[in-house]
Design a protein around this nucleic acid. Structure first.
Length: 371
RNA sequence: CCGGAGAUGGCGGAGUGGUCAAUCGCAUCUGACUGUAAAUCAGACGCCCUUAGGGCUUCGGAGGUUCAAAUCCUUCUCUCCGGA
């Protein structure tokens, strides 16, 4: 189903597509090191402008030789702009009302220092350039899926405006980096189309899907599904020419990624494998876990490692996996470590889930492309 | 043997006449998590009925007082702490 195997060239190596990039939002893939990440088969990572700027400072990183040197990560790095973070913080349950989005950009407040600053399309690009990112992302304007038509229209309008400003700033900087824009419009087909067509007129390297996961009430196929809006992902993919690089931001569960790869998406990132690992929600090959999931003939299981049913289980988490956790330790022992909240459990399980995602991408590559 | 304290649901541990099927923690079970403010959060957790709700049996055993007892009284069993 994949027409031609795409490759994304960066200064820190080529990215073979499709690819999954783990999130190192704060400059770290939570609970593991970048050396661990390499052992999981991770080839490229995502880190976030806002968090790095707030916690370290892009000028400081620039002075210290750039983010690759600072992280000791010599492979490609994609930076997210920070727009999503401000958006999600404004709309989080706790509601951090001090953050605000206006025509100028996003005002954000560091919850630790209470310092307020303005993130604009221009300075977001500048920060990402300072970091030495390989792939930059425009400051975009996400919106809730249950927003009004008026809000959606204004959001898309602003999103395009910011994309143009970001691109202008990007071109002023003399470098060989790549820039991605973000197609928005919530779950509104017409506005997604409008957003895509406006952005396609501009000279971006990558076209991103501004992902908003479904909440209850929004559906695709099953009434209670809470993943991504598959029909929208297919629709938006079809709006983008085949030769362009397509990045589905925030996607997703393995089956969501499988679906998206089939529909032409190339790049993915999500917090799920790392966060779920910390919560004892483990991805394993079919027949090894508690709940069977998958997409078409590509199946896998989910294992709840904290369950008592693994108390005496001396088997590895996944007998087909060669990661550090599965090569050395039993389900029983890892469960024991996790129940004690030992950091080694978080590390081992994160390594396992990321290895699973790497293998899943390989599987998609061979299985879907051979169709 | 004497004196003192106590026995509560899988465990720990509140409650000391009615609003108690019994706070809370742990354990257990289920669910959530998707461009990370998340090693987090939500629900269930005596038994039965399909939810709202209703019914039934519980607070060491037996008996009693009372309209009403995990809570008061008597007694038995057991545990712990002092003293011989």
């Amino acid at each position: 189903m994949i027409k031609n195997k795409k490759i994304l060239k960066t200064k820190h190596g080529e990215i073979s597509l499709p690819s999954f990039m783990p999130d190192a939002t704060y400059g770290s893939i939570k609970s593991i090191t970048f050396e661990d990440a390499k052992s999981c088969g991770v080839k490229e990572i995502v880190t976030t402008t806002l968090h790095i700027e707030q916690n370290i400072g892009s000028n400081r990183i620039k002075e210290m030789g750039g983010i690759h040197k600072y992280f000791n990560w010599d492979r490609p790095i994609l930076t997210d702009s920070g727009g999503w973070q401000v958006f999600s913080l404004i709309n989080s349950k706790s509601g951090y009302s001090k953050n605000a989005i206006s025509d100028l950009g996003c005002t954000f407040v560091n919850p630790n220092t209470n310092k307020s600053s303005l993130l604009t399309p221009e300075n977001s690009i500048q920060i990402q350039d300072n970091l030495g990112s390989d792939i930059l992302t425009v400051l975009d304007h996400p919106i809730l899926i249950n927003s009004t038509l008026k809000e959606r229209r204004e959001s898309v309008k602003l999103n395009t405006k910011w994309a143009k400003r970001s691109l202008k700033k990007f071109k002023e900087l003399d470098n060989a980096k790549l820039l991605g824009c973000v197609i928005q419009g919530a779950n509104d087909f017409e506005l997604r189309k409008q957003s895509a067509s406006e952005l396609l007129e501009l000279d971006f390297d990558i076209f991103n899907y501004g992902g908003v996961p479904l909440t209850s009430g929004e559906t695709w196929r099953n009434d209670n599904y809470t993943g991504f809006y598959h029909e929208m992902l297919e629709y938006v993919s079809n709006l983008i020419p085949e030769n362009k690089i397509k990045y589905a931001m925030g996607v997703g569960q393995p089956e969501d990624i499988a679906y998206c790869v089939e529909k032409g998406w190339d790049l993915f990132d999500t917090v799920l494998p790392t966060r779920n690992a910390r919560h004892g929600y483990i991805y394993v090959s079919e027949g090894n876990g508690d709940v069977n999931r998958g997409y078409k003939n590509l199946k896998y299981d989910v294992m709840h490692i904290k369950s008592k049913r693994y108390e005496d289980d001396l088997n590895p988490i996944d007998s087909t996996c060669k990661c550090e956790a599965c090569s050395n330790y039993s389900r029983s022992y890892i469960r024991h470590l996790l129940r004690l909240k030992e950091s080694s459990a978080l590390r081992l399980l994160t390594i396992h889930n990321l290895t699973f995602y790497s293998n899943w991408m390989k599987l998609l590559n061979t299985s879907l492309s051979s169709n």
